[in-house]
Simulated assay, not measured.
Amino acid sequence: MRTIWLGSWALAALLPLTSFAEGASCTASATEKKLAGAAKTSFMKKCEKDATATCDAAAVEKKIFGAAKTSFTKKCVKDSVGAVG
């Protein structure tokens, strides 16, 4: 019988990387609210900050650390914020 060891990076690769933000993406919310200029910039910064905190918490909950956590959080925040445009 073989024992298979998976490092945290390998485990993270096996986990589904989904957005942890509730509701629509930040970009979609800003568009829906018809924000523009400084108001949109401020909204997007706060939304991204909130998404980062949520994604970091999710990574810790899933016991993902190091480079895997960085990768997980980056992907999670990107999904939460949505396409910039």
Rank of each mutant, 00 (worst) to 15 (best):
K75Q: 15
D56N: 15
K49P: 03
T3F: 08
G82S: 08
G82N: 04
K49T: 10
C76V: 01
E48K: 10
A38I: 07
T70D: 14
A57D: 15
G37W: 10
C47V: 01
A67P: 05
T54V: 15
T3M: 09
T3G: 09
A83C: 00
T18S: 13
M1G: 06
K34Q: 15
R2P: 09
L35T: 04
T41G: 08
A12F: 02
T18I: 04
E32N: 06
G7E: 09
D56Y: 08
A12L: 00
E61G: 04
K40H: 12
T52F: 02
K62A: 06
A53K: 10
K63R: 07
G37N: 12
T52M: 00
A39M: 11
C76T: 03
S29Y: 06
I4L: 02
T18D: 11
T73G: 02
K45F: 04
L17G: 07
G7W: 04
A83T: 08
T41H: 10
P16S: 14
L11F: 14
S80N: 04
A36N: 01
F20T: 06
C76E: 01
A38S: 04
L6D: 02
K49Y: 13
F65Q: 02
F20K: 04
G82D: 10
T54A: 10
K63G: 12
T31V: 11
A21K: 00
E22D: 14
E61I: 00
G66Y: 05
L15W: 00
M1Q: 05
A21C: 11
T18H: 14
L14N: 13
K45C: 05
L14V: 04
